[in-house]
Amino acid sequence: MEAILSSFLTKYNYWVFIGLVMIGMYALIAKRNLVKKIIGMNIFQTAVILFYVSIGAKQGSTIPILDSGHGHDAHHAVQAIDYINPLPHVLMLTAIVVSVATLGVALALAIKVHQQYGTLEEDEIAAQIDKP
């Protein structure tokens, strides 16, 4: 029991991940301004990226670049325990680029909504839609 509790408390990356996901969900649900909602969406995405990078990290290992990968001294066997797992990093590179693309589309839609209705608040937009 104590081992489970201490392993939960020492992996504080996951607690920060939970907190950031809750901040992002709160902004997506409770905020009425469209730009605030988009900021919440971005916080959610970076929290997921933090979770994946935390999976790959381990204690006492170095960045995944081979010191003697080629050349004359390229005879060492690679010990995988010495290096951080680079697979989540590569997946999250794609996720960062996709998040910027979704941010651009969302902000363009917000600009078009502001041109149409003259406001960014969701309740005022809903009132203008219901009126005529």
Binding site: I39, G56, I84, P88, H89, V90, M92, V100, G104
Partner: peptide
């Protein structure tokens, strides 16, 4: 955490371009 490639992609794309988009 040792994810250097993710770090500089986040610094250039996430912080730089996203902030420019938001300000615009």
């Amino acid at each position: 955490m040792g994810a250097v490639d993710v770090a500089f992609t986040e610094a250039s794309v996430g912080a730089g371009v996203s902030s420019v988009f938001f300000v615009a």
